[in-house]
Write a protein that binds this DNA or RNA. Structure first.
Lengths: 373, 373
DNA sequence: ATGAAAGCGCTAACAC
DNA sequence: GTGTTAGCGCTTTCAT
C-alpha cells in the first residue's frame, strides 16, 4: 500500500506521511524502486563499493538525498553480524574522575567509527556481572569497556564468564591480572612520587588520608605512601594514616582524626584533591598554616587544585587518556578477532606525574604574588 | 551444519564452538529445535505471553538456561520497529555539570527499561545538527535527549528539521521555545536569589562575574543579577561585571579585572562555583578578606563549595533531576506517539535554591568553629 | 496452545 | 555492472 502510493507522486505523498503518521522511514527498497535499480545496487552505493556505474551511482545518490534516506544500522548489523558499537560500563558519573574517562572514551570511539551503548552501575560493588554482560551481548556490541574501578569483590564472577565470553573486553583501573586486558594508572608510583617529594622537603612525620580502602586505587596509593616512607628509612606507623571517603567532607573529618592521633605530623599526603580541599578547610579552621605548619600533597590534579588556598601540589594522571587507550585496545581486539587472530592479554600502565605548588613549598619560600597556573 | 551438529551432543559441541571460533551465538531456532517446539513458541516464552502450556514453558526455560540463550535485541528491534533505546547527545563531559545530568539520565533510563546510545559533541557550537540526528535515527533510537546547553547559534538548523523529525526529542538547558519540549533550570531566578541575598545583607555595590556570554545560562544568570539589582533600586552599571569562562583560572583573572574597574564593590555574585574558587584565590593573594571586605555567592552548589575557604554561599540546582525529567518526558512522548496521541510541547522549569554559608555572612558574625555542612 | 508463513531492512553470494 | 536469492534473528498474522 504504502509503496504503491509512493509510486505516483512521491514528494507529495511523502510529506503527507511525514506530517501525519509516526511514519515508516524510507527504506533501501523505496530508493531502489525510485531509482529503477535493485536494492543491491543501492546497497553498493551506500557502502561505496567500486562496482557501480558512475551514472547509476549518481542517480541513486540523488534519490537518497531527495528522499532523505538513512540506512537502518540495526538491519545492517543484523545481516553483517557486526554492530560497530561498544558497550561501556561505568559507575559514579556524578564524580569528575569517571566522567573524564568517559570523555576520553567518547572521543576515541567516535574517531574510530564506533557508537557507544552506555550503562552506569548504581553501585560500585555488590552487583552480579552476569546480567550486565548478557544485556550488552544481547545488543550485539562488538566489544566491551569495563570502566568500573576495581574494589573489594566487584570483579567476582568475571573469571568464570571471561572464557565463555565471545566479545572482547577491556578493563580499566584494575589490578594486573593474568589473562585480562587492563589499562590502569600507576597509583602506587604516583603516591611514591608525592611521598618522596615531601621527604625531600625535609619532612619526617608524613601522614596519609586514604580513599575508601575497599577501592583498589585507594589501597595502591596507600601502598605507595608506605613504600615512599620505607625508601626514606621511615617506618610507616598505623597512627599516621586515616581512612577517608574521597569527598571534601570526608577529608575534613579525616584531617581532624589524623591530627588527633598524630599531632606531630608536619606533612600529609591526601589520596585525592577533593579530600585535600576538606583537609585544608579543617586546618584553616584550626589556624594551622599550609605549608608552614603542615605541607600537603593531593592526587588527581583536578583543575581547581591550582586555586585552592594555598594552591595544591598534586599528582596528575590522565584519565582522558585512560579512556582513549581503552577504546584503542578493545578495537584492536575486535579487529584481531575478525581476522581470527588472538592478542595476548596484558596490562597497560600509565605513568602519573608530580605537580609542585605552594602547599608543599619549603617554609622559607614566600607566597608568590604572581602565580603561574 | 552448525545446527545439525548441535542435534547430537549439544553441550559438548557448544563448548568447543565457544572456545574455538568467534562463535555464532545461540539463536531462538536452536532453542526451539532443542525443545522440540517452534521458534514462535520460544518467542512466546521469552516475551512472557500467557498462551503457552505451563510444561512447555518450563521446558523451554530450562533449555534457554542450559544453552545460555540471549534474545538478539537488534533482531527484535528490527521486527518490532522499536528499539527501546534513547539517543543522548551531550557535550563537555570533562566538566561536572553535564556529567551529573548524564548521571540522572542513566538512572532514569535504566529504571524505565531503555538503553542509551551516547554521543558527545567535541564542541559546544559550530556543528551541523543534521548528521548527528541522522546518525541517531539510523540507529533507530525511539527518542532523543539533546543535552547540549544552548549557546550562540548551536540550535540553528533545528527548527527546519524538527517538524520532519519522526522521533520525539527533548531539549535540556535551553531557552523556552514555541513547539519544543524543554527541561531547564530557572537560572535567572537563581541569580536573583543570590543578588537579593547580597542586597539584604546591606551591600549596594554588587559586582558580577559572568560565564561565557555565548552561553544562554550565563546570559540568564547575568539577567538575574541585573533584575535583582533593579528590584532593589540599584542601577547595574557596566563597570560592575566582567566575563569569565566557567573555570577557576578564569575566575581568578576575572576577579582581578573586576576589582580593577570597580574597586568599591563590597560583594560579588559569581556565575559558578569554580570561578568563585578562583576569585577567592585572587582575593586571598591580595589580602582581601571574604566576607568581611567582599562577600561572595557562587552558583551550582558543587559539594566542594562547602569546603572553600571560607565556605561558599551558592545556588543549588539539581542537575541530576534535570536528567531524570528529560528521560521521563521523552519516554512519555514515545508512548504517546505509539498510541497515536500528541502531547503539546512545553517547557519545564526547575527551581533553584539559595544556600547561605560563610562567604556571605554579615560582617559581625564570627566564623563558626563547628560548621554545619 | 501451537505452528507456518511472511516480513522487518539490509547484505553476502552467486548468477548473468 | 547489475539483479536474484537467501538469510541475519526475531515477531506478527493467521491457521489449525
Amino acid at each position: 500500500m504504502l509503496v504503491n502510493d509512493n509510486g505516483n507522486d512521491h514528494k507529495h505523498t511523502w510529506n503527507v506521511l511525514m506530517a501525519s503518521t509516526p511514519s515508516r522511514r524510507v527504506t533501501i527498497k523505496q530508493v531502489a524502486q525510485e531509482a529503477g535499480v535493485s536494492a543491491q545496487t543501492v546497497s553498493r552505493v551506500i557502502n561505496e563499493r567500486p562496482d557501480v556505474a558512475p551514472e547509476t551511482r549518481q542517480r541513486v545518490l540523488e534519490i537518497i538525498e531527495r528522499l532523505g534516506y538513512q540506512p537502518n544500522v540495526l538491519a545492517r548489523s543484523l545481516s553483517q553480524q557486526r554492530s560497530y558499537s561498544l558497550g561501556v560500563v561505568t559507575a559514579g558519573l556524578m564524580y569528575i574522575g569517571p566522567s573524564r574517562t568517559l570523555n576520553g572514551i567518547t572521543a576515541r570511539a567516535e574517531a574510530l567509527g564506533y557508537t557507544l551503548v552506555l550503562k552506569e552501575l548504581r553501585t560500585f560493588g555488590g552487583y552480579d556481572v552476569g546480567p550486565i554482560l548478557d544485556d550488552l551481548r544481547s545488543r550485539q556490541v562488538d566489544g566491551i569497556i569495563w570502566a568500573v574501578p576495581e574494589m573489594e569483590d566487584n570483579r567476582r564472577g568475571f573469571q568464570e564468564r571471561l572464557d565463555s565470553l565471545d566479545v572482547p573486553i577491556v578493563f580499566l583501573t584494575q589490578h594486573s591480572r593474568e589473562g585480562w586486558h587492563i589499562v590502569a594508572v600507576d597509583n602506587c608510583l604516583g603516591a611514591r612520587l608525592a611521598t618522596a617529594h615531601l621527604v625531600e622537603l625535609g619532612h619526617e612525620h608524613i601522614g596519609h588520608i586514604t580513599g575508601p580502602l575497599v577501592w583498589w586505587e585507594a589501597r595502591e596509593r596507600k601502598r605507595g605512601w608506605e613504600e615512599g616512607l620505607v625508601e626514606a628509612g621511615i617506618m610507616p606507623s598505623e597512627k599516621l594514616w586515616v581512612e577517608g571517603d574521597w569527598s571534601a567532607k570526608g577529608g575534613w573529618q579525616a584531617m581532624a582524626r589524623l591530627l588527633n592521633q598524630a599531632p606531630d605530623i608536619t606533612a600529609v599526603f591526601v589520596a585525592n584533591d577533593q579530600m585535600a580541599l576538606g583537609a585544608l578547610h579543617y586546618l584553616h579552621e584550626q589556624g594551622i598554616t599550609v605549608p608552614d605548619d603542615i605541607a600537603m600533597v593531593g592526587f588527581d590534579a583536578i583543575p581547581e587544585a591550582a586555586h585552592f588556598w594555598p594552591p595544591m601540589s598534586t599528582i596528575r594522571h590522565d584519565q582522558h587518556e585512560l579512556g582513549c587507550r581503552a577504546v584503542e585496545t578493545v578495537v584492536q581486539l575486535i579487529e584481531a578477532q575478525q581476522r581470527g587472530e588472538v592478542i595476548e592479554p596484558k596490562t597497560q600502565v600509565l605513568q602519573p606525574q608530580l605537580i609542585i605548588r605552594e602547599s608543599s613549598q619549603p617554609r622559607q619560600v614566600i607566597h608568590s604574588q604572581t602565580p603561574q597556573f
